[in-house]
Every structure is written in structure tokens, then in C-alpha cells.
């Protein structure tokens, strides 16, 4: 479980986060929604222990993330918005390095790296340099690097930016597996359809403040009556993505 209590953070005169609180239950996916500059990444960075809050705290299964070496950081996996990978190294070398930072070594590290490569569906490209990968492959490896130490909470900061539908679907499948395994996911995005598809609960943020914190149904219920979803008998039109996947297939395109 992740608890965020009264987080505030400013950069100079700019208030990035103002008194933000929310709770993410174990095995659930919490979406942080907001436009660009809303403060989503700042909140995620604070939970990851990358930024120090001016006030407030984040607790992972009761342990505060309050220092560089805080044990709580071992419970958190962080997938930054940027592709945080050493392009010059192979996928396997990247995973070995990031695993070493969490105290993994030897056979255990090798096993975890192999498993993470499997999750990212990159086992056959383990020894290739990351700079030779497509955008989708890098995104998947970016996620795999955060899974090596088997975190209890996974922070994903816009993890599908710039990927093709096949890779996005692969990422969604991976996230579904992780959640079913009991991992708590914190997912920031400004793609509403992703939030609708993945998240059990959604926190909408703007100007560093929480505007809403509820389930999808709860959020719909906040709308004025005339704007709420209604049950109708309609012909459901397929999405363009479904047409695209039907034509191009679901197989990953990593070449």
C-alpha cells in the first residue's frame, strides 16, 4: 500500500505540488491524471525518493521514503518518463547494473535479469546494445529495469509515450500481470483512454492540487446529470486502434 500525505513541493516561486494526499491499495492501479505541468511527475519523483518534499511524506507499506538510503526505496520500482537506460550498453548489462544498485548479485541477479528480459519480451535481444532498439523495445526495457528488485509498488511516469500500438498492448498486458501478482501500480498519463483501461482509481491533478480522487464510476457520478453516462442500445463503433491491430496483427515489431 502506498500512502501519500500532504505533499508539497515548490521550485523557487513555482508551486509544483500543494498539499496532495491519496492512498493506493495493494494490488490496485492508481492513475494520476492531469495536463502537462500539473505536478504528476513531481509527485512520482517524491514517492520514488528522487525529490525531497518541502512538506508531507510518502509511505510504502508503512515505511517512509525520507532519505537517499531509506529501506522503503527498495519497495519501490521507478519507471521514469525518459528512457533511463545506458544506450551504449546491452539490455542485459543495463539490467545487471540496475540490479546491482539494489544489492542483487551473482546467480540471483542473473536470474532476475533473465526474468525481466522475459517480461519485456526481449530475451532474444539481451546482448544487443540498447541504441539499436526501437522506441517500443526501449520502453519495455525501461519498465523491466524497474522490476529487477521485485518492488511492491511500481511507479510508471507516462510509460507509453512514443510507442506503437503493439508495444503499448504488450506493456498493458505486462502491467495487468504485475497487478494480478499483487503489485501496486501508480500510473501517470494524460491519455484518458489508458486511464480508463488500466486504473481502478483515479486522482485528477491540476496546478499541483488534487481535484478529484475516486473510482471511474465515482468520477462519472460527479458529473451533472445530463452529462453522465447513460445506458443506451447503440451500435458500438470499433476504435481505429482495433482496426489497426486487426490489420497489422498484435505481434511485436522489434526489427
Amino acid at each position: 500500500m502506498l500512502e501519500v500525505r500532504h505533499l508539497s513541493k515548490s521550485f523557487g516561486d513555482r508551486v509544483a505540488v500543494a498539499d496532495v494526499s491519496f492512498v493506493a491499495e495493494t494490488g490496485r492501479t492508481l492513475g494520476l491524471l492531469g495536463p502537462n505541468g500539473a505536478g504528476k511527475s513531481t509527485i512520482v519523483n517524491i514517492i520514488a525518493g528522487v525529490l525531497r518534499p518541502d512538506r508531507g511524506e510518502a509511505r510504502v507499506h508503512g515505511a517512509a521514503v525520507d532519505s537517499d538510503t531509506s529501506p522503503a526505496k527498495r519497495l519501490v520500482g521507478f519507471v521514469p518518463q525518459d528512457l533511463a537506460l545506458y544506450e551504449e550498453l546491452s539490455a542485459l548489462d543495463n539490467l545487471r547494473l540496475f540490479g546491482s544498485l539494489y544489492g542483487l548479485a551473482g546467480a540471483e541477479l542473473d536470474a532476475r535479469a533473465a526474468s525481466a528480459l522475459g517480461v519485456a519480451r526481449l530475451s532474444d535481444r539481451a546482448r544487443d546494445r540498447v541504441e539499436t532498439f526501437s522506441g517500443g523495445m526501449k520502453r519495455r526495457l525501461n519498465i523491466a529495469a524497474a522490476l529487477l528488485h521485485e518492488p511492491r509498488v511500481l511507479l510508471l511516469d507516462e510509460p507509453t509515450v512514443g510507442v506503437d500500438p503493439q508495444s503499448r498492448n504488450a506493456i498493458f498486458d505486462t502491467l495487468a500481470e504485475l497487478r494480478s501478482g499483487g503489485m501496486t501500480l501508480i500510473y501517470t498519463t494524460h491519455y484518458m483512454e489508458e486511464a480508463e483501461r488500466l486504473c481502478d482509481r483515479i486522482v485528477i491533478i491540476d496546478h499541483g492540487r488534487v481535484l478529484a480522487d475516486d473510482t471511474l464510476d465515482g468520477l462519472y457520478a460527479r458529473l451533472p446529470a445530463h452529462a453522465r453516462p447513460v445506458q443506451q442500445v447503440v451500435t458500438v463503433r470499433p476504435t481505429l486502434e482495433s482496426v489497426f491491430l486487426e490489420l497489422t496483427g498484435h505481434r511485436l515489431r522489434d526489427d
Binding site: 519501490v76 540496475f98 544498485l101 544489492g103
Partner: peptide
Amino acid sequence: RGLWLRLKAAPLAR
């Protein structure tokens, strides 16, 4: 490149 964030997220002293 965002790598600094990933390194800082690890439980390591500055």
C-alpha cells in the same frame, strides 16, 4: 536522459 533519476531512485547515498 533521465538516468540520473533512476540512479537516485536506488537506495544509495549521494
